[in-house]
Amino acid sequence: MMKVWVVYPLRVAFASVPAALIVSALAITFLPPSVSFWVSGAVSAFSAFLFVAYAWGRHAGGLLVAPAIALLFCMNIFPLLWSFGLSFFHYRANRLAPPRFAGLHYYEKVLSDPVVWDRLQVTAKMVVLTVSLQMVIGFLLAMLFAKQFPLRRVLLILVLTPMMLSFVAVGAFFRYYYEPTFGLVSQAVRVFTGEPYVLLQSAAGATAGIVFADAWMWSPFVMLLVLAGLVSVPKYLYEAASIDRISHWRRFWSITFPYVRSLLMLALLFRTIEAFKLFDVVFLLTEGGPGTSTETIAVYVYRVSFQYFKTSESAALAYILLFTVIVLTNLYLYFANKRNRT
């Protein structure tokens, strides 16, 4: 005898797809947009729900997972598909004109646009600088905090605070510190040179300023990961090393480092993905200037979509960005799994 669960929901799920399509089509034709949106949203969520419930079959698991999948579908996957669709149409979010089909026009345009390549280069430069600085500072901080000492907990909190600040505060206050007349940096330099120091007005200075602020904010993150690696090294290895009278240098490279390496990779990937999306700090600190020398790709996409309102172009651009991030995420998962296995 076949169980009801096995046959029944799948048939219902498949039947729900055309039903959902018809209902949403009717809703879009006859109802005002603000209502039809909800109708079609609810119908497609319900249909997705049925499929997920089936995927877990007889288990209650499907019902457990379905709400989460449904919400993510509405708030992430659906907008994602929408913007994928938009990237093939001529469309501007601030005009009433209906979308016209454009094919691969925008992808061609974006990929052959020297401006985009320039922004990608700026981003790459920023990512390399900030991530490598974070790795070094984070590693050194972790070495410092690896041992137990009095007041360690309190001092650790002091170092971790930058990570907890809001981006707005970091952006705004680093602008305050870099300010030529009353900023702290400028005043400190003036003690030695006698001249006010203008940091954010040259391309190199602005890049350095952003990199410094970002690295300051996120080095504690690298520190946390490295700390976990340092603590996980079994003590007997160090004992064996001291019995064999191995040099400090060799002990570091052949005992400590291998334990930290995988976590360091994890930190590297996590920070690269995040740094690739660098938006808030740049936007608040320099707004991409001077000129466009610090305009990262994320800031550029923001400008294209919300200042020039070239919605389709920004959608195509965003997809190229997304592709890169997915590749990075895959790498991240590969390393995460590798670590869990060992």
Binding site: P79, L80, S83, L86, I273, F279, T311, A318, L321, V325
Partner: peptide, 19 residues
């Protein structure tokens, strides 16, 4: 599920804004 978290916010923000 993880990928949706790794997305640059800017990718989904346009359609969410429209939606």
């Amino acid at each position: 599920i993880l990928t949706t978290r790794m997305l640059p916010a800017i990718v989904v923000i346009i359609p969410i804004f429209l939606m």
